[in-house]
Amino acid sequence: MAIVMNGKKITAAFAWVESPTAVHMAIKILAGLCALLFLLDIIIHRHTYVPGEGMWGFYTFTGFFAFTLIVLGAKQLRSWILRDENYYGEQSVDSEEYPTSQLDIQNEPAVDRENDQ
């Protein structure tokens, strides 16, 4: 759980993110949370303004399906409108790199990847 930085070992606060167990754990927590929220909807009476809003699980379904549909829709959209980066010519802002002279690109020295795990 540590990476080497400037020759020193530094504990990366968020390195756990890459461990599959942690990811699985996070997914499980999310699933649990979702279940909880779903159940709460039965218990707690939501104050509503819009007809149908009070329907059981309204927000849960809306959230899930809206998201899914948006992603699917976007995917479809991409198939229509995606073009090569040079579509507007070589000198378009979409295809060029940000001029490095104005940046301060600093990389941490080589990282010992094996220590990551």
Binding site: I27, L30, A31, L33, C34, L37, F38, L40, D41, I44, R46, G57, F58, Y59, T60, F61, T62, G63, F64, F65, A66, F67, T68, V71
Partner: peptide
């Protein structure tokens, strides 16, 4: 509650 439901289920969908 409503907001959390919306967001969490959206997250779930993402996962």
């Amino acid at each position: 509650l409503a907001q959390m439901q919306l967001l969490c289920f959206a997250l779930l969908a993402f996962v």
